[in-house]
Amino acid sequence: SGNANTETLPSGWEQRKDPHGRTYYVDHNTRTTTWERPQPLPPGWERR
């Protein structure tokens, strides 16, 4: 039932692989990409 990797990503993020097989992350909220895995927001924090 779903990929465990995507469940731990913050809302709006997606994990992808480039043509060389390297994993990167897409932030659909800001339309940016990063090599660093995004950290889920700490409990009690809200994204503004």
Rank of each mutant, 00 (worst) to 15 (best):
H28Y: 07
S11C: 10
K17R: 10
P19W: 04
W45I: 15
E14H: 00
G21K: 04
Q15G: 06
G44E: 12
T6G: 12
R37F: 07
W35G: 05
R22F: 08
T23H: 04
Q15H: 10
W45V: 15
L9C: 05
P42F: 06
K17Q: 13
T8G: 13
D27Y: 00
N29Q: 11
T8E: 14
T33F: 00
N5G: 05
P38L: 00
T33Q: 05
T34F: 00
R31N: 11
W35L: 03
P19H: 10
P42Q: 10
S11T: 11
T34L: 01
L9R: 04
R22K: 12
N5D: 10
G12Q: 05
G21Q: 03
Y25G: 03
D27I: 00
R22G: 04
W45Y: 14
T34Q: 07
V26D: 05
H20P: 01
N29K: 12
R22P: 03
G12F: 02
S1N: 01
T34H: 13
T34K: 03
E46N: 10
P10Y: 01
Q15P: 06
T32L: 11
Y24T: 04
L9W: 06
L9V: 07
P19K: 13
G2E: 15
R47P: 15
P40R: 10
H20K: 13
G21P: 01
E7I: 09
Q15Y: 07
S1D: 09
S1P: 00
E36W: 12
P43V: 12
P43M: 12
G44W: 06
R31H: 12
S1V: 13
P10G: 09
Q39L: 09
K17H: 11
W13V: 06
Y24W: 02
P19F: 07
T34R: 04
R31K: 15
G12E: 02
A4G: 13
Y24L: 03
P38I: 01
T33H: 02
P19G: 12
Y24V: 04
Y24M: 02
R16V: 08
T33C: 12
G44I: 04
D27V: 00
P38H: 02
T8V: 12
D27Q: 03
A4C: 11
Y25W: 10
P42A: 11
G2Q: 13
T23N: 11
E14T: 06
N29E: 09
N29C: 04
N3I: 01
E46H: 06
Q39D: 13
R31W: 02
N5M: 08
W13F: 05
R16N: 00
W13G: 03
R48A: 15
E46T: 08
G2K: 15
G21Y: 01
Y24I: 05
P42V: 08
A4N: 15
A4T: 14
N5P: 08
W13R: 02
T30M: 04
R22L: 08
N3G: 05
K17M: 09
T30Q: 08
Y25D: 02
H28K: 08
R48G: 15
W35E: 06
H20Y: 13
P43K: 07
T6A: 12
P43G: 13
L9E: 06
N3F: 07
D18M: 00
Y24N: 02
T23I: 04
R16F: 10
S11V: 14
E7M: 07
D18E: 05
P38G: 01
H28W: 07
W45Q: 15
Y24P: 02
R16D: 03
D18R: 00
P40F: 08
N5K: 11
N5A: 04
P19A: 13
R48W: 07
E46L: 06
W45T: 15
P10V: 03
E7K: 07
R22M: 08
L41F: 12
W35H: 07
H20F: 05
T8M: 14
S11I: 11
R16W: 03
R31S: 09
T6D: 14
T32V: 09
W35P: 05
S11P: 11
P19M: 03
W13N: 05
R48S: 15
Q39Y: 04
T34N: 03
H28L: 09
